[in-house]
Simulated scan of single mutants.
Amino acid sequence: MMINAHFNDIDEKLLLSLKQVSLSMFRKNFFGIFHGSISARLTYESFVINAKQAVFDDLNEKSLIALNTIKDYRWNESSIDTPIHAQIYKNYKNAKFIAYAMPPYSVSYSLKHTHLRPLDFFGRQILGEEVEIWDIGNYDTWYDRAMYEIADHITQNNKRFLIIKGYGIYAFDRDLNSLAKKIAVIENSCKILHFYADLQNS
């Protein structure tokens, strides 16, 4: 079932919030043209997520699909990341919003390091002194494993985000702006570390 014009006030606000944050993250290169995903919980067992062909700088009611956490035919039209989002919603009652992003500095930093150790003030304050960068191993089997392994690894780390080597960032939160801020802080810390390494080598 596509989200349509039959929004109540809460639905209209939700659509506007998703649209604004998605556009902001697209402009920062956190989302690609057809890469990345964003979702919001509607009820305990349902959520809305971007469609497979959604363009993130112009999300609208036609590019969002309302789904149940149990797979049905509607999943065929939704993001390839839908099973991962569904599993996170099942595992975490406090997950209201989820995003998967591929910020370039974070992804490139993850290829060379096993941990993120922020040097900047906000990185240290928000992320902590050290964050694991998770190596998923074999890329060929990744989407067969991702649905369960991402949710499990979030539990092991006891954080609301996960930096995945060569893949990107999964994050969830009760507040959409806080979720976007967390991804932005990770990317900014990786960017600062990149420039710092260049200064050290110059």
Results as ranks from 00 to 15, higher is better:
D120C: 01
V55D: 11
F97L: 04
P104F: 11
I133P: 04
T114G: 11
N68V: 11
A86Q: 09
N50D: 10
N91F: 01
Y89E: 02
I80H: 02
I38E: 08
A95F: 07
I126A: 03
V48Q: 08
S78T: 02
A99C: 12
K62S: 13
L42P: 02
F56T: 05
E61I: 15
W134K: 00
L67G: 00
S110M: 14
F56N: 00
E45T: 11
S46D: 10
Q87L: 08
D81F: 06
I33D: 09
A86C: 12
V107T: 12
I33V: 13
W134P: 03
T69C: 15
Y44R: 14
A95C: 10
F47T: 07
V55R: 08
I49M: 03
I80A: 07
E61G: 14
K112L: 12
V107M: 13
S63Q: 05
K62L: 15
K93F: 06
V107G: 07
M102D: 00
F56C: 03
L67M: 02
D58K: 10
Y89S: 01
S106P: 03
Y89C: 01
K96T: 05
P103L: 04
W75C: 04
A99I: 06
H113Q: 06
S110D: 12
T82I: 08
L119I: 00
Y109A: 09
H113I: 06
L64D: 05
S63P: 00
H113P: 04
W134C: 04
S39T: 01
E129F: 07
Y100Q: 09
G128V: 01
I65F: 10
Y100H: 09
I133Q: 01
E132S: 13
K90W: 10
K90F: 12
N91S: 09
L67V: 05
R117V: 02
L111A: 06
R41T: 09
Q125P: 10
D81S: 06
Y105E: 14
N76I: 09
S39I: 05
L59K: 12
E132D: 14
I70G: 00
K93D: 07
A40V: 08
P118E: 04
I88R: 03
A51K: 01
H115C: 15
G128R: 00
K90C: 14
A51Y: 05
T114Y: 05
P104Y: 08
Y109S: 06
H115I: 14
